[in-house]
């Protein structure tokens, strides 16, 4: 069974329909890249999955449980339980600036899950090692580069052991020379078979790491398929034009 199911998702801001009848499914352990021009609704779609955006119609289910069913949201507690299956990484990192790297990682497990201190400390040490920032544990975010901040943000999300990771343009706010280190960490996660949905403008990366690609344009998924299908043999004219443009 699919771990994420979205059907007929609709959302509008006033008169503007930002998402129109979005329907797709994601299998467990799949890595899905969402690509498309700016303003096509990619980020809004991703944010709807974790309840950062309120949708106006359609259904979203995660891990077999309904977050929204035909426009009706689950109750508050259910929402919290369902969204807790997902971790999210933002374009602008959103680290807590008043806490050290280690504290950023440990705050949620401590207060949201009420886990034991030594258990948390062990996991944060492991995860900082994994993202290559063991030496930055006691540093405040203001002392980190963009790439380092984003790696901390990934580790912070992983601390909650999510089943699914959502990435909202994780490298768009970074200097070009810093995107590599972040993409490397995401690739490593892909190799560990964590289910991931990545909104990205990095076409090379999407091609290399994704099992499935969703191409969005003007609030719709106009095409989906394997990287080969989308990049080598796009069906719609719109996709073709976009791919030609970005790969040029």
């Amino acid at each position: 069974m699919s771990i994420v199911q979205v059907s007929n998702l609709r959302k509008s801001f006033g008169d503007l329909d930002v998402l129109k009848n979005i329907t797709f499914e994601i299998e467990k352990n799949q890595v899905v890249a969402v690509i498309g021009p700016s303003g096509s609704g990619k980020s809004t779609m991703l944010r709807s999955l974790i309840h950062l955006e309120q949708i106006d119609g359609g259904s979203v289910s995660v891990g077999g449980q309904d977050l929204v069913k035909e426009g009706v949201y689950a109750n508050h507690q259910e929402l919290k339980r369902i969204t807790s299956k997902m971790g999210m990484v933002f374009q602008h990192f959103n680290l807590f600036p008043h806490l050290t790297v280690k504290e950023n990682l440990e705050l949620a497990p401590k207060y949201v899950k009420g886990e034991q201190g030594d258990q948390i400390a062990q996991r944060s040490t492991e995860l900082l090692k994994k993202v290559g920032l063991s030496d930055k544990a006691n540093v405040y975010p203001s002392k980190l580069s963009g790439g380092q901040k984003q790696r901390v943000a990934i580790a912070r999300a992983l601390m909650m052991n999510p089943e699914i990771m959502l990435f909202d343009e994780p490298t768009s706010a970074l200097d070009p020379e810093l995107t590599g280190e972040v993409l490397q960490v995401i690739k490593q996660l892909a190799a560990e078979q964590i289910t991931m949905i990545i909104v990205t403008h990095e076409m090379g990366f999407a091609k290399e790491v994704a099992d499935k690609i969703l191409f969005m344009d003007q609030g719709e998924i106009t095409e989906s398929g394997t990287p080969e299908e989308i990049f080598m043999n796009p069906k719609s004219e719109r996709t073709k034009a976009f791919i030609n443009y970005v790969l040029k």
Binding site: N94, L95, V112, A157, M160
Partner: peptide, 20 residues
């Protein structure tokens, strides 16, 4: 973004205010 990060990590409103 601070409120959003807190929300996706599962903090309650009160915890978000107090800790973040």
């Amino acid at each position: 973004g601070q409120y959003e990060a807190a929300q996706v990590l599962g903090f309650s409103r009160w915890q978000t205010m107090r800790k973040i």
